[in-house]
Amino acid sequence: MIEVSNLTIRKWIDFLFQIVGLLILFLALVTLLSLILDLSTKGLHRIDWAFMTHFPSRFPERAGILSAWVGSLLVILLTSFFVIPLGIAAGIYLEEYAPKNFFSTFIELNIVNLAGIPSITFGLMALGFFVYTLNFGQSILTAGLTLSLLVLPIIIVTTREAIRTIPQTIREAAFGLGASRWQVIQHHVLPYSSGGILTGVIIALSRAIGETAPLITIGALTFIAFLPPNPLGTDQNFYDWIFSPFTVLPIQMFNWVSRPQSEFHVNAAATGLILLLLTLVLNAVAIFIRFRFRRRIKW
């Protein structure tokens, strides 16, 4: 037998790594908790029915975030509408259909690059293309499209990663029974990778809902005292709301933080809490859907 002298050291290194890992985790959690605690102590008392149902005002105690949270919800709704099908479809195409050649490698490389571009650059592009060239204006539509482009790479990349985890033997089993490529995707690839894909969707939408820079660039207003037209109203078209000017929670928050009066800072903290809550609710919905999807799949 070979003489072993380093077992104690190896065990120590194991132990050390656990401690370091635990400390880092703790640090991350404490940061998040202190952030929430800080926002809560400053802003929680400000949140009430009036705060949610009032428009912004130059009097801090009368100001509310109605237009901001409605704006955020509508922008996220449009973003989801564009980016979820587009991102998943692109991921499926690249993983299941695209031939591996120079062209597809070039596309893949650029998708990864796209994920690394500063968000304000997307804002500038959107200002030139969506606002002026396509004449969509400084609207919810422009915002939705801009944020879609911004988070598209996240969904594409996570979709591909999720699809890659499905064993090839499962695909061969389905093909062997005479399934077409689309049947394999529809019956197997998509259901089995839905968990991973939805995780990507959560990350992407959470990122989109907190974005400020590109929306300011395309001209989201910081002071909006009206709601987009009601799609069910009688005197307008169903889709009029997508061309309406808007503001979103982070912009409202940014606007209030930059005011000199400290009362507005309280409003900003309260808005931050609502934004956090909205993100958590969106995540919870996605996690619930993921749970429903996974329930019927047992590896």
């Binding site: 064993p167 033997t169 499962i170 061969e172 089993a173 389905a174 062997g176 197997h188 089995y192 799949i297 047992k298 590896w299």
Partner: peptide, 8 residues
């Protein structure tokens, strides 16, 4: 196939 590959 070689290894049993039932669908999940």
């Amino acid at each position: 196939f070689q290894k049993p590959n039932p669908f999940p």
